[in-house]
Design a protein around this nucleic acid. Structure first.
Lengths: 179, 179
DNA sequence: AGTTGCATGTAAGAGGTTACATGATTTC
DNA sequence: GAAATCATGTAACCTCTTACATGCAACT
């Protein structure tokens, strides 16, 4: 069982989901394509960690809705208690910035503006997710307790937004350096 | 030529280095083991992007010091102008936080403190790198221009330190939530 | 008319980790 | 005495991406 498998169980511990949905929701924490997720779900099912129901649809393709089993829940809890790997970031842009002196100021500025646009789009996306969360919750998000279903969502969104602000501030600062 | 190969060229554009040193210095932007880097260096050498000199050592094992060639420099400059992939982070801890309600508050707190310790160690490390940079530079770092050799180092260290502060603040905030 | 989203799956190949192999010096 | 650092390299294995395959509905 690899980390991605446990990641899928983590998501399923809150909601039953299709492979397609799991693929979409796991991206911020563990980027993965559908071609990686579908075989893992089949493996998890064979191990008894998840189960699924076929849901025929008329307008869209039929789907398989997966749920966590008791076996899966136990595996998930054990995994949480195990030592956790350090986060790993692969950032092509940082590699380019390291030797940015090799191109003109204009080209460097263009790259920075593009990356800033990317971060702004991310921020808009996360801000919308945040607003959806606010509407979904019966109580103010700050009052959510650890054992409530939206807690994980809330604290991870905050984490992502704070990091994005750090990145955006850095972009602004870099742009001022290139003028 | 993959991203890691260009990353190696990026580092070599500033200093001639051994495979071992390249492996150490590329970690923050593109984690890689020596077993991945040595074969890539051999490939880069065959393509004429890098060259090396054997340096025998008595106390330590002999080493190969690699340098960027003109061919390598041109390849590097072309790559900088190409579209840049979005950064990808894989964070096992975030997956666990998502379903943190499955364990006790005490266990959750233990995990957070461990992760905070990790971030603090990273911060100490980067702060030391920053101080080394200050000593290495003849002028105040804020006055460094884009085309100066230490510029890339400086701006990336600032980026890393700001993001670490965001992570540390989040840890503090999380700890207060769990009390 | 072409792209995007929904929805599943497989196969080939590239990228990345772990383990094996060697060996001296320094630090705990 | 054991572990870490320096230093290189290969082989086996696992992980991840890209491409192929299908098909309808909605939007541009």
């Amino acid at each position: 069982m690899n980390t991605l498998s446990y990641g899928l169980l983590s998501l399923l511990s809150k909601n039953s989901r299709t492979g397609y949905e799991l693929m979409q929701h796991i991206q911020p924490f563990w980027p993965a394509k559908h071609s990686q997720i579908y075989p893992l779900l089949a493996q998890l099912e064979q191990k008894g960690c998840v189960e699924f129901v076929h849901v025929p649809q008329s307008d869209k393709p039929d789907k398989k809705v997966y749920s966590l089993t008791d076996t899966g829940l136990k595996a998930l809890q054990e995994w949480i208690g195990m030592p956790t790997d350090a986060p790993a970031t692969r950032d092509e842009f940082a590699l380019k910035v390291y030797c940015i002196g090799l191109v003109s100021k204009a080209e460097a500025m263009k790259m920075l503006v593009e990356r800033e646009d990317y971060y702004i789009k991310r921020k808009v996306h996360y801000t919308q997710s945040f607003e959806k969360l606010v509407k979904l919750s019966e109580k103010p998000l700050e009052e959510l307790e650890m054992d409530e279903p939206l807690f994980g969502n809330y604290v991870l969104l905050r984490k992502a937004l704070h990091k994005l602000d750090a990145d955006l501030n850095w972009c602004e600062w870099m742009k001022s350096k290139l003028k």
